[in-house]
Write a protein that binds this DNA or RNA. Sequence first.
DNA 1: GCCGTTTTCGGCCCGACTGTTTTCAGTCG
Length: 582
Amino acid sequence: MTNAAIAQIMREIAVLLDMDGVPFKPRAYEKVAYAIEALDEPLADTYARGGLKAIEQVPGVGKGIAERIEELLTTGRLKYYDELHKKVPVDLSGLTAIEGIGPKHVKALYEALRIRTVTDLEKAARAGKIRDLPHFGEKSEQKILKGIAFLKGHSGRVPLGAVLPLLEEIQARLGKIAGVQQVALAGSVRRRKETVGDGDMLVVSNKPNRVMEFFVGMPEVVDVLGQGPTKSSVKLDGGLQLDLRVVPAESFGAALNYFTGSKAHNVALRKIAIERGLKLNEYGVFRGEQSIAGKAEEDVYAALGLPYIEPELREDAGEIDAARAGKLPRLIRYGEVRGDLQTQTTWTDGANSIEEMVDAARRLGREYMAITDHTKSLAMMGADETKLREQMIAVRALAKQLKGFTLFAGAEVNINRDGTLDIADEVLAELDVVGIAVHSHFNLSRDEMTRRIIRAMENPHADILFHPTGRVINKREPYDVDIDAIIAAAKRTGTALEVDAYPERLDLKDEHVRKAIAAGVKIVIDSDAHSVNHLDYIDYGVATARRGWAEKSDVLNTLPAAQFLASLKGSRRAKRGKRGRS
DNA sequence: GCCGTTTTCGGCCCGACTGTTTTCAGTCG
């Protein structure tokens, strides 16, 4: 049974317990559902490796839930869940996905009208049967139909890069309204999560109604979900839900902190507040009735005895302990990446010429760039050795003319099925930057895929493993690969791992970055630009690196060009040395 | 059901908005 399936059952148990008003237990199951979804290793493997004890290592899992997971893994069923579900045998996750429908409503709908599925619910609502139920009315009936229609049109989270530019534009618009003193993006957008489910914005204004009127009247708004003096919610035409809060200036920091989340981070902060005899809410930190902090986020953390914690770290993933111990990382900053090492041009599948890409990169303030077009075995039009040498000549000729900008000759070399590379070693040796990548045979077994990639990393000319797991958000799952083994191989061979900043890739992802740097592996952050418009994606990669606790020194392409190149050459020498000895 | 710099028992985050209600439950974040 997959982790996703187990997590869903844990979440459904939480819903079932909530229906009966059981206190606290539902939160325990819910928390475990989140924890399981965040795991890298299949629980089946965890169990095979270390039995019940290993399962209990998952955060939030105690003896009781560990045994329930064991039952699921060994029998494929869970009696406890089946018994609960028998009482309200409905499509729990489907129904609760509808905006405004929670556990109590699901139960009421089942008991009164035997509604089991979203389809049942839609029929009943259309027939006007919902409005007569206790605690429901005509408006709730309409809201249900709206919610169902919305779900049919959209599902789930979208890449950060698909919404951030619009949100920043809306932020700028709100900032121009008279009376608005501050505007900020909050929520998972501010934490720079790779995907976002909705947007959160915060405004300080002495004319809140004016802000709200403007907000719900924006041209992108297709539906107003709620409108009050301090909080409004709208749906945008792209399907994104956007929430806006208007807060007093003296609460801006506390509100920003609160609405940035994550939820788990907030809960942890509130516990610290309680321990200190304080109360933390979105208006400030309070001792009794007295506010002791709230205007700035730094003050809120300080009132809790903590240093400021960067938004990208706020996932309750150890950042609070690190803050308490004074061991927070000094995260790499936006703008500290000096060079871009994965770019494609019209030589293969890019939209712009080498010259155009160079111009655009310079305008963005980059100091160096590698041209890394695809190589021959790629079905499209990859370069073979001859074409690659031709391009090298062109690149080096242009490089000579450039002042204050370094242009590297490189390639995105395919890893063959057996782990060999599709370009001859003597040509690779001439390139400044050799990126290696999997572009075929995605369905190998975990073992085969892992061995394949490690063999490629052992090639003495391989500098960087590009997009190491191959995932494309919302399109393609990562291939099955043992990322810990890849990280260990990267350490052993001195191969850098890439954070591909292309918003649909962001691969390595945040938690893998964290593992890699903990192992002492260097990473690089590349745009994977296929046109001049993609070069500024680098910031999404920096965001992922920050979420993975990366410091500037962990990221090779924060080095100046000469040092960067020296570092690659050093790694190649070391590789050849190791190879010679073995 | 989980968890421990007060604790192995007794806690478990907090507030806004909606729609249905005559004072609040449910949902959401």
